[in-house]
């Protein structure tokens, strides 16, 4: 199979830039990165289709030699449609996040934050406390820059996010 070097290069540049953008914090930039990755992958499909040829439209009894491979094109079309829907959904989510928080950053894992927080204060986790009913109450020093020191219990509750049935 012969490969079009221009397409390969374009695809890899798009993928590379996309990956860089996905590593950003802002959801909008992540989305842009995903769109770039999506386009890079679409071009990769064109590469997979082999040498470019005539438009794959077959007339009755016509000549079929030298046609492009239509299958990858059909797949790319499907992928583009899916990408469109995805973009719309992520945009809506970024907007909602901005509505709620005033920013659209991808947020830290609560659990992760909490563990770091507890570790920095050298206290036991709630899971341990729940079984022993004994909690060393060291509340003296928090992380610098973390605002008022808080109740580890309340922080631990954050991921229990179910609405209470009314």
């Amino acid at each position: 199979m012969s490969v079009n070097l221009t397409l390969v290069l374009t695809s890899s540049v798009l993928l590379g830039c996309g990956v860089y953008l996905v590593l950003e914090r802002s959801l909008t930039r992540v989305l842009l990165g995903l769109v770039m990755i999506g386009n890079g992958v679409s071009i990769a499909f064109l590469v997979a289709g082999g040498r470019a040829g005539r438009a794959p439209i077959v007339e009755k009894g016509g000549d079929t030699s030298g046609l492009s491979d239509p299958l990858p094109q059909a797949m790319v079309l499907t992928a583009i449609v899916i990408m469109l829907a995805t973009t719309a959904f992520v945009l809506a989510m970024a907007y909602r996040s901005w509505q709620l928080n005033g920013h659209d950053d991808v947020q830290d894992d609560v659990e992760d934050d909490m563990i770091r927080h507890l570790a920095s204060r050298d206290v036991t986790s709630e899971a341990y406390a729940a079984t022993t009913s004994d909690f060393p109450g060291d509340d003296s020093s928090g992380d610098p820059g973390e605002g008022p020191d808080d109740d580890p219990l309340a922080a631990d509750e954050a991921e229990i996010n179910q609405e209470r049935p009314s």
Partner: peptide, 19 residues
């Protein structure tokens, strides 16, 4: 009460289910 601090936020979210 929204801040960028995740711990703060965690506390806010947990607030309704106080001890």
């Amino acid at each position: 009460t929204i801040t960028k601090n995740d711990i703060e936020e965690a506390r806010r979210l947990g607030n309704d289910d106080l001890p």
